[in-house]
Design a protein around this nucleic acid. Sequence first.
DNA 1: CATTCGTGAAGACGAAT
DNA 2: ATTCGATTTCACGAATG
Length: 334
Amino acid sequence: MNDTRTKPDTDRERTDTAERATANEAAETTETERATQTCPECGGQLVTDEEHGETVCSACGLVVEEDEIDPGPEWRAFDPGEKAEKSRVGAPTTTMMHDKGLSTNIGWQNKDAHGNTLSGRQRQKMQRLRKWNERFRTRDSQERNLKQALGEIERMASALGLPETVRETASVIYRRALDEDLLPGRSIEGVSTATLYGAACQTGTPRSIDEVAAVSRIDAMEFKRTYRYIVRELNLKIEPADPVSYVSRFASELDISDEAERRALALLESAEDAITSGKSPVGLAAAAVYAAPRLTNEKITQSEVSEVTDISEVTIRNRYQELLEAEEQPQAVA
DNA sequence: CATTCGTGAAGACGAAT
DNA sequence: ATTCGATTTCACGAATG
């Protein structure tokens, strides 16, 4: 993609490792969702806001794509010399760095601008400057908090194979939580996990609570408590996860035909009005994924679906029945 | 024989008090 | 903080192909 692009070392490492993990997800979102230009969250029309460089949903306001202006350089460097010659800016900005990558570092080499060695007195001066620069850079506890949290978010996101947009969203939410002083008394780890989970839901690539909890260092109970707290205090509008969002992932894991996948989506479509009360969205998706292949004469067992979706066979059965009922009487609502 | 379906007890969760 | 109602899960056996 942009291997030759010049980025800070940390940034480069991150994208290298993350890209492999997120390759599937990224391809899916760009090809299916953006191509159709409908909001992954509510299905509304997407509108491009040139002024702010965002793609937003006209219906629910979900920001699908931010910073469409490529923050990378337009040139390519093939050796360090060229890099030094062509580079006229610093690192690209990203919310994934605690200070958005805008802070200045003082070089470690004891040379002046012309490459001459500094005198002893000046070296001492530079040492003091470096020390203070570092102290200001990670100025207070908030900044240090953020630094660590973003690391955690990053780690969990790549473990879950979540695309870049989710991580960006998560870091934005985390910043808000930080600004609202929601952190005291709560573990960084917990809030990080909660924001990541919320961000995943918002961006239409949800992961179940169990999946997220599996890669987190905190237990599921604290995670859910923190998540609720964050959502409430920040007034995040997060719709109950749409079962449709799970289908494509489950479908590919189960090696289901495209035809069956479409049937599954159609089933959910016709059932979404009928079954909305308090049921687990994942369960509904699992039932649809189980039901669809039977309509296309593909063999699939409940235990297989159960394994992949982490939903019990019993629940799959129940949702399955309900799906069939909703299918027969689409407008049975009084 | 494997798979599916139905049942009741038990645990987990959210909401209300 | 506790209790209540609904949902999910577990364990089992019967029915189906």
